[in-house]
Amino acid sequence: MITIKFFAMLKNKVGRDEAAISIPGQITLMEFKDILKKEFPCISGFIDKSVLISVNQEFAASGTIIKDGDEVALLPPFSGG
């Protein structure tokens, strides 16, 4: 299973702060984004545009491999400080 974490406005839109989904073997982040958009259509626009994604607490690129047991977080634009 992949743990997915939602923060700030994405948490509000999805209605929870965490979800778990299973994936077929290992896939790239680009492929995982398509799964996310189908699973969470209410935030598909954010996934295409402003959201950064981390895998196991490190920023991920479109080619990053996602595998069973990973923690993926959807990160809206930061506003700390």
Partner: peptide, 25 residues
């Protein structure tokens, strides 16, 4: 650098309601 790379988010409460701030000041 903190503002650029640290996953922290600010919500402002005004008389009009709550807003998650999206852009960096």
């Amino acid at each position: 650098e903190l503002k650029r790379i640290t996953p922290i988010w600010k919500k402002e409460t005004t008389k009009k309601g709550d807003v998650w701030v999206e852009e960096r000041p």
